[in-house]
């Protein structure tokens, strides 16, 4: 059974059909990319999966269960984490604390336990801190742990955001244009990092404009244009796909 199944998904904003009858599946452990020109509906598709929008039609099944129409926090609890196209870091918190928020759904101390600092709370805090430090280390930014996240450079903020998403222990990780704003070296580094994340057993779905990255790391690629899926295949085939070439390069 596929981990994620998108079935006849549609989203209409007034007169605009942003996503139109899109369907594909994502196998466990795979890296799949969604590409397409600006306005093709990629980010809308992402927001539908992450619960920030609810679909006008169709279904999204995660581990066989429908998740469309759930709130983002409920989707997160199912084990789907995401990063944002424009980095959304928690200001007023250190890099480490940002990552610690990612442990939210895997921990359970409430207001009373926290205010009274119960032994269970202390234990949990220690575990959260250790796990989050490990993840910062995994991202290679352990030295920034106590730095306010807003003071970090763009690349490191992106790393914090990724570590935060991983702290959720996601089954599925959604990456919204992870290479945006990175130079070619940083992009190559990101590609290796995504590979390492997959090796942890995380399935990855990404929206990306950077073709070198997409062709390099993806097992399969879905191409959207004007909200419709026009192709889905392995990178080698997509590169030569006549309709894809037409969409990107014109006639």
């Amino acid at each position: 059974m596929s981990l994620l199944a998108i079935e006849h998904l549609g989203k209409r904003f007034g007169g605009l059909q942003a996503v139109d009858d899109v369907g594909f599946t994502l196998a466990r452990g795979a890296i799949k990319a969604v590409i397409g020109p600006n306005g093709a509906g990629k980010t809308t598709l992402f927001n539908l999966i992450a619960g920030m929008l609810s679909p006008s039609s169709g279904a999204i099944l995660f581990e066989g269960q429908p998740i469309h129409g759930l709130q983002p926090c409920q989707v997160a609890r199912r084990g789907i984490a995401r990063t944002f196209q424009n980095i959304k870091i928690f200001h007023g918190m250190s890099a480490l604390e940002n990552v610690m928020v990612g442990r939210h759904v895997r921990t359970g101390v409430g207001f009373f336990g926290a205010m009274l600092r119960t032994p269970a709370c202390r234990r949990e805090e220690r575990a959260i801190r250790e796990r989050s430090l490990e993840l910062l280390d995994f991202m290679g930014i352990a030295d920034c742990a106590d730095t306010p996240a807003v003071n970090l450079d763009f690349g490191r903020q992106r790393a914090v955001e990724l570590a935060r998403a991983l702290a959720l222990e996601p089954t599925l990780l959604l990456l919204d244009e992870p290479a945006a704003g990175l130079n070619i070296y940083e992009t190559a580094e990101l590609g290796r990092l995504i590979g390492r994340i997959r090796d942890l057993g995380v399935t990855i779905l990404l929206v990306e404009h950077d073709m070198s990255l997409v062709m390099d790391i993806s097992d399969e690629i879905v191409v959207l244009s004007f909200g419709r899926k026009i192709a889905e295949d392995v990178p080698e085939v997509i590169q030569k796909h006549p309709e894809v070439v037409k969409v990107y390069l014109g006639d």
Partner: peptide, 19 residues
Amino acid sequence: RPGRALRAIHGSPEAADAM
């Protein structure tokens, strides 16, 4: 944990929701 959740809501409600 709950305090960080509150501060996260202040920092970015969308991201807090997504986490």
